[in-house]
Design a binder for these strands. Structure first.
Lengths: 199, 199
DNA sequence: GAAATGACAAAAATCAAAAAATGTCATTTA
DNA sequence: TAAATGACATTTTTTGATTTTTGTCATTTC
């Protein structure tokens, strides 16, 4: 009956569609199987549990955010200060665009994120590593003056939480949002460029 | 029957006790009235609704955080840089202490906060005003070089969300918590002290 | 007569029975 | 013989009847 053989990929796509139209509370694996025209037993042949499927869908969504950011982090020809700014803007914009594009789906993924702590921790670690990479480049070039790129990356990620953490999405449509972001990023970049006793 | 006449104060105290022992989901105004030995109708004589009582209890809890911070903000004899650091440390410590002291009550108040957006907005505005006051002092003394104390205050408050927002409480017992805080505060203070084109 | 009461209607929470979803696996299909 | 099925036991969610809680106010109390 199946035209294309059933694969993880196809299941993931169907699961995302089901999630989009039913929401995180109502979507279930029978629906996903139905969307694919197979029995739900077949889905369990590719994913050990509903939680595993949910994690895979979330991971795929997060990849679509982190992969383009890696490209920015890798752009060695861009000066570190500019590169850092571009990266922070890109992260902010990626989140805002997803919220603006489909608020319900954004809310759905926020719920999934709340249920899949490990997947999120992994994603955050990836993003921090990208930041650390840029900061290390800036330290090497003499643009930044900080001892520990890892700790500094964590500080920058935390400092900008307000602009990328889904729990703060409520604020993203505020009037002074852009000014607030620019003020904070300006402050942080000045901090990085300042000479330190200990760095 | 009543020894002391029923007052807002006494109701507030009883409500906090009830909240402490029943939690935010189970506490109700009949319980509060019972704890005071009065009918629930009498409570409604002092508070228009359960929501109004809840707001008042939350406001009182928040005051106990913001009033001591105001004292720090007002300490003109302390140099602005140190004063700012003290204020940020005090806010962080106040939240951490409440979480450590009674995690269940902290969770209860976090739920209340989620239900009483307006009260929280007011509280945040107060805290930001305190920060703005310190920053304005630092700008006047030449320690800081930022154009807009209000915007800078907002940026500092947002940048440190990770260390004072209840939604982030999960992280507060982490191993590198103190280092992370010090790294971020150091970065921010350097940023404030740096010369700017536009300030 | 100001403060408190408790009976009451309306709204919300609870609970247990019924329905649906998850996860397994012996059997079927191609 | 690898992939898919669907019947099944178990767990979770939904549903709707019942109980609790909220909020009001005419009456009572001190």
């Amino acid at each position: 009956m199946g035209e294309t053989p059933l694969s993880r990929e196809r299941i993931l796509d169907a699961a995302e569609d089901v999630l989009r139209s039913y929401g995180p509370g109502k979507a279930n694996v029978v629906d996903v199987a139905q969307a694919l025209g197979v029995s739900h037993g077949s889905v369990y042949r590719h994913f050990a549990s509903k939680a595993a499927l949910r994690d895979a869908v979330l991971r795929s969504w997060l990849q679509r955010i982190s992969v383009p950011l890696q490209t920015i982090a890798d752009a060695c020809s861009t000066p570190p200060t500019l590169r850092l700014r571009q990266w922070l803007v890109a992260l902010r914009d990626a989140k805002r665009a997803r919220l603006a594009d489909d608020p319900a789906l954004f809310a759905t993924y926020s719920v999934l994120a709340g249920e899949a702590r490990e997947v999120i921790d992994e994603h955050v670690a990836q993003l921090r590593a990208q930041l650390a990479q840029i900061i290390a480049a800036g330290t090497a070039s003499g643009d930044f003056h900080r001892a520990d790129p890892g700790a500094t990356a964590a500080a920058l990620f935390d400092a900008t939480l307000r602009f990328h953490h889904p729990a703060m999405a409520r604020h993203w449509s505020g009037r002074d949002e852009n000014t607030a972001f620019e003020t904070l990023v300006g402050l942080l970049l000045h901090g990085l460029q300042a000479e330190t006793r200990d760095g």
